[in-house]
Structure formats: C-alpha cells, structure tokens
Design a binder for these strands. Structure first.
Length: 563
RNA sequence: GACUUGGUAGCUCAGCUGGUAGAGCAUCACACUUUUAAUGUGAGGGUCCUGGGUUCGAACCCCAGCCAAGUCACCA
C-alpha cells in the first residue's frame, strides 16, 4: 500500500504512543456528560464538564494552546495549558503527547472547566485529556475567516459521495440535510400514527414485480430455484392487507428500478405508500395537503421552503386542476372525446416525440409532460388521468374514459400519486390484460398479471384510497437540493477501480535485468533495456514507486539497485 | 446513450507558445502563556486519472479508455 507522507507520520506517532504505554484505541467507555451544544446553551463559568469529539483545529503558542473539539452537535473551543495539564515536573503529557503526537481528526475525551477568554469565546479549560481514537488519515477540515468566507472546503462531489463519512465529518451543512430527512420520516409517522394508521412491512423479494410500470432487478433463489424480482412498488401487497381487514396501512418502502441514473434517479429509492379504507381520492387530496403542511413545518419550522429560485408555499389547500383543463390551459387543445389518431396528430403537430406503440393514455401523458408539467411550481393537484395510463385506478364516477387519480406537482415535478383504488376484480383483470396488449405492442414497462392479487380482490376490498410519495424528491424540495445524491447517504456510484500493484511487462523485464546485474549505473541499464525515453521513465518510476528498486545519486553518478 | 466540462500535493486550486511541477492551508522542525483563517523562520511532500502516439523534450498537442459533474434523450 502506498502511503502519503502524512499517513506515514501518523503511523509513527501511533507507534510512539504505544511505546509510551498509551493505548490509541482504548476499550473503556468515556464518561461524557455534556455535548458542545449543552455547554453553549447553559454556560456557567467554572462548571466542570466531560466532553468527547474530534480535534478540528489547533493554535499552539508555546506553553498554551487553543483547539476546537467537534462532537455530533457542534464545536467548542478548548484551552490546553501546560501547567494546568501537567501539575508536576513531568511535562510529557503536554509537550509530547498533546503537541507532537496528537493530530487534527483524532478523537479525544476532555475533562475540564468552563471559562471565557479575553475575547469572550466560550471555552473549556482542559484539566485532563484522553486519546480515544487515533486517526491515520488527515481529515480535510475547511477554514473559515472572520468574514465567514470558507477556504479549502471539501466539495468534490465524487469524493463526497464515495466517502460520505468524511463529507459528514467536515461539512456540517451536509449532515443537516440528513437530520432533516429523518425529521421528515418522523413527522410522517407521527401524522399517520396519530390517526391510528398501521405501519407494516411487505416483501422486497417478489415473484411478480407489480404496482408500477418499471423495469425490475432480477435475482434468483437457490432453494426454490425460481427467479425473484426486487420490488418496484409495494402497492399490491398493501392492498392485500386492506382486503385482510386493516383500515389504514402504510409502509416506507425501499424500491428498486433497473433504469437510468441521473440527478433525480437512483436505482434504489424510498417511497411512502398509504392505503385507507372507505375513502376516495377527494378525501386523499385533503389528507395529502394537511400531511405536507405538517411535514414542512416539522422539517423547516415554517410552511415555506426555498428551491432554487422558487419559494414553495406548503400551506394547505392546494389548487386542483384536471389534466384536461391543464392541457387546455397550456395548449388550447381539448382532449375530451378525441380518438387516438387525433391525439397522435396533435402531438406530432406540437413537435412532441411520439410513436405508434403509444396508446391514447400515453399520448395524453406525453402532451401533458411536454407542455404542462413544468408550469406547476407551487403544489398543485393534477386530477383525472386517462384510464389507459392508470391500470390500478377506479374509473371516474362521471367520465368513463378517465380515472379517479391525482398527482401532486411541485416545481414541475411529480412528488405524489394517488387513486381511488380499483376494487372491481373483473375490471382489474381486464385492465391487466390491456397492459399485456400494450406489452405485445412493445411497451416494455407494461405490468404483469398478478393472479394472487386478483384472487384477493375477488374476496372483496372495501373502497379505498391510496397515496404514494417519493420521499427522496420531497426531501430534495424541502432542503433545496437539486440532486438526489445529496439526500441519500450512499448514492449508487460506479465502483472505484483498484490500483494495479503488480508489475507490468516492462517493469518485469527491467527487474530481471537488474537482478542479473545488481547495482548498476542508471544510463547503462537504460540502454540495456532498449526502452524509449518515455517508457524507461515510466518503468523506473513504476519500480521505485512500488518499492522494488531504488535510485541513488552519488558523486560517481546515478545508480539503480533492487531494494 | 449523445454532447459539454473537469481529473495536478492530504484539501482548495494555478500552471503562459511544449522546455527542471507551483501557491495557500495542512504536515514536519524551531520560537511563542488568552488565540481564533494565530504568528514568525525553515524544511519535506507529486503515478500531473490510465494506456498509447507525435517530439530532442508532454501536465500541456493527438488517439483510445476510465471516473465524475452538467445538459439533453430515455425513464417516474
């Protein structure tokens, strides 16, 4: 393994500590009794505290030193004074251990008492300290000047995502996004639980991937010797539970879709789905806007949030616009009663990319997606989707071509999708069959037929309304992050390629020559090798870099030898 | 999948027309008892993403590839 200079220095310090009888990774608990936040909130001069955290900066001035310690809630300044820490004649703990063997990033425990410096900074005067964990790699803490300007912020997206642990340690704003994420989940649970809806878990490995139109990941179960799919949605399982007699069930479900990745799509993502018996989609719209107002306040303390240039107002109620009206509003075209041919011709004329695998529903969806979707910035319910696009949704009570479905649009993106759930088992079977016909026509996302789900419906599901919310997207809007990777702890990345430590062919050849010759003058070996200047240079650098050979400069010239 | 941009020290970045690889912070050494981007002096630290090519000579030019970000396409 190639170590940088700083890593080598830290390993040497580690060994030195052990020689001195200091365990750099002690087993015993450290009796923390204050967080940095508690100290600042309830500051009393002279109060004794025990804190623990990482050393994030140091300002050493001879016999005294200021440093900062960061725990999970923030930072506080600590003051190390040689004669306070080392009351006797032996000044080793300060001079050696603190000044020379500790590094920025190390995790230490501090026993001390509170005071304010001449400048008024709340500070812990250290009376004793304990090394709790030595860190072997330098952590890239940023520095902030008096004007609040940040220097050397660790902000390369690739490095931050690949090493999220580093990102979290050094970028408090990043950590805050994830704190808010969890607040969002907690707020939703609280909202549902207070209404006595029941949190459940349903299978992630499914024999039939249902409940959405998407490409699944496929895996294989060895004992059963069958293919299994990772779920693309949990809808059909939750509805089975409504059949089973629960009045309201919900689940935060990790879903998996084997599709493209970009700043709004990760192969695994989290949805929340809730189903409530004896309700319809009108009720669900009221419920949704109350839910989101509640969540916005729980996360940000206010009903408003900022996303890019937009200020989003989450306060209920939200406007409700039918899809037909939305299309009429933005294109002037009335889709009511139009045939597939007429819709196709209109889409074509508007310059929308369409092809003949598309049925009526998909054409309407394309027109809406192209011409309308992006215009809805403030939370808006778009209602009454075409039947063909909604195979799990009850037919609209007044318009047989439409369904009782809504999507909630925010900043031109869908964040929620809800129906009056289709509970007519015969209609449901026909809708699945229509999906099969679409699949035959070339739509590779059309749904499979889930016979067991149909059997469940045949036993009778009460009228039910269901809602799905894309949790990742919602938290993006609530934390002003345009990229899904910023709201996932560990977004999917291509694996890092491992460095090749084996010798390549040229290096092997030179290695053999060197083995025969022993220590030899550099240029002589170069001509023996027959390599070009560039290849020679690469090869020798490769060998020395891998600690196989070494180059020495003496008065007689440059020599190379095996290590 | 297409296009654009980027990949140089632990971090953030500079690097001219192709001519010995730079800065700040970090690290190391010395000084320094209330600092706060501490300060002063000195030192060390590099697979310039990888592999080819052009050239006397490549971080830089050319070709191929890898990784990422952004835009678009596809897609909830």
């Amino acid at each position: 393994m190639q170590l940088s200079e700083q890593e080598i220095v830290r390993r040497e310090k580690l060994a030195k500590l052990r020689e001195m009888g200091i365990d750099p990774y002690p087993a015993a608990l450290y009796p923390v009794d204050h967080s940095t936040k508690q100290i600042k909130a309830d500051f009393k001069e002279g109060k004794k505290v025990n804190i623990a955290g990482r050393l994030t900066s140091r300002r050493i001035q001879g016999k005294a030193s200021f440093a900062e310690v960061q725990d999970s809630e923030g930072r506080i300044q600590v003051y190390f004074n040689r004669d306070e820490i080392c009351t006797g004649d032996d000044k080793t703990l300060y001079n050696e251990v603190y000044k020379k063997l500790l590094d920025i990033g190390d995790i230490i425990g501090i026993e001390g008492e509170l005071f304010k410096t001449q400048v008024g900074e709340m500070t812990v005067k250290v009376t004793n300290f304990t090394l709790l964990t030595k860190t072997l790699r330098p952590l890239p803490f940023a520095k902030t000047d008096a004007d609040g300007k940040v220097y050397d912020k660790f902000d390369d997206a690739e490095q931050r995502y690949r090493q999220r642990y580093v990102d979290l340690v050094v970028n408090p704003d990043v950590k805050n996004v994830f704190v808010k994420r969890t607040k969002l989940f907690n707020a939703m649970r609280e909202f549902f639980n207070s209404r006595e809806y029941f949190e459940v878990e349903t299978p992630i490995l499914q024999p039939i991937p249902g409940g959405a139109a998407a490409k699944p990941f496929i895996t294989h179960h060895n004992s059963l010797d069958i293919p299994l799919y990772m779920r693309i949605a949990n809808e059909l399982y939750l509805k089975r539970l409504i059949v089973g007699g629960f009045d309201g069930v919900y689940e935060f479900s990790k879903n998996f879709r084997n599709e493209g990745m970009d700043r709004t799509h990760n192969p695994e993502f989290t949805a929340m789905e809730i189903y409530v018996a004896y309700k319809d989609y009108n009720w669900m719209m009221d419920f949704t806007e109350q839910l989101l107002e509640h969540c916005a306040v729980a996360v940000n303390g206010t009903t408003q949030s900022t996303f890019g240039d937009h200020t989003i107002e989450w306060k209920a109620p939200y406007p409700r616009v039918t899809m037909t009206d939305a299309i009429k509003q933005f294109t002037g075209f009335d889709i009511t009663g139009k045939s597939e041919e007429e819709l196709y011709a209109f889409a074509k004329a508007e310059g929308i990319e369409v092809d003949n695998t598309m049925g009526k529903g998909k054409l309407i969806d394309e027109i809406f997606g192209e011409k309308c979707e992006g215009n809805f910035i403030q939370p808006t319910f778009i209602t009454d989707y075409p039947k063909e696009m909604s195979p799990l949704t009850k037919e609209h009570r007044d318009h047989p071509e439409l369904t009782e479905r809504f999507e909630l649009m925010v900043c031109g993106k869908e964040i929620a999708n809800a129906y009056s759930e289709l509970n007519d088992p015969i209609d449901q079977r026909e809708r699945f069959e229509a999906q099969l016909a679409l699949a035959d026509r070339g739509d590779d996302e059309a749904m499979f037929i889930d016979q067991d789900f149909l059997r469940a419906l045949e036993y009778g599901m009460p009228p039910t309304s269901g809602l799905g919310i894309g949790m990742d997207r919602l938290i993006m809007f609530l934390t002003n992050n345009p990229s899904i990777q910023e709201v996932l702890f560990f977004p999917q990345m291509r694996p890092e390629k491992k460095l090749n430590v084996d010798l390549n062919d040229d290096e092997k050849m030179v290695y053999e020559l060197l083995k025969k010759s022993g220590k030899v003058e550099l240029n002589a070996l170069k001509s023996d090798s027959g390599l070009s200047n560039k290849k020679w240079d690469k090869t020798v650098k490769g060998l020395t870099g891998k600690k196989v050979a070494k180059v020495e400069k003496t008065d007689d010239g440059l020599f190379i030898d095996l290590v």
